[in-house]
């Protein structure tokens, strides 16, 4: 009996240990923004408002992508006090691709590889203080990359 009690206690505490970090992480993921099919909804859920078009956001991506499963994108913000960069693909089933938050000496610069379902704009939104800036680049996709 005592052994059983000990074991259940042990199991209970172990599962608690595993559960805690997962729950803490889950709270950090913006489910509403990532799961919506509407770019406007995704933006709203990221608190993006009154976007100003800015050429101080550089987006480097191919003009034509052979394979939409892997499209390399480089984003660089020259906007002072850039805190975060969001990447959207307008015509993807879920337009929000990624949201990056920078702190303590991280440059507002990112290179990553994304999936594109169709020929679409890659839209980038930069957060600087209470302001939001945006820029877009069109990529022609020859073979779609979303399963």
């Amino acid at each position: 009996m005592q052994r059983r009690k000990f074991l259940s206690l042990l199991l209970g505490s172990a599962s608690l240990l595993f559960m805690l970090p997962i729950n803490a992480w889950a709270a950090l993921w913006n489910k509403a923004a990532f799961e919506t099919a509407k770019l406007s909804e995704a933006s709203k859920n990221l608190a993006i408002h009154d976007e100003i078009t800015s050429l101080d956001i550089q987006i480097t991506a191919p003009d034509r992508a052979e394979n939409g499963a892997i499209v390399q994108v480089e984003v660089k913000s020259n906007i002072l006090n850039t805190e975060a960069i969001s990447i959207f693909v307008e015509k993807n089933p879920t337009p929000l691709i990624a949201h990056f938050k920078f702190s303590q000496g991280a440059e507002p610069f990112i290179i990553t590889r994304i999936k594109m379902a169709d020929t679409s704009d890659i839209k980038v939104v930069v957060k600087a203080g209470n302001q939001y800036f945006t820029h877009a680049k069109n990529v022609i996709v020859l073979e779609n990359g979303c399963g």
Binding site: A98, H99, F100
Partner: peptide, 14 residues
């Protein structure tokens, strides 16, 4: 010290 925090959706490549 945290320098970068990213949230990703399913649109990041394999």
């Amino acid at each position: 010290k945290t320098v970068l925090e990213a949230q990703w959706g399913t649109g990041i490549s394999k």
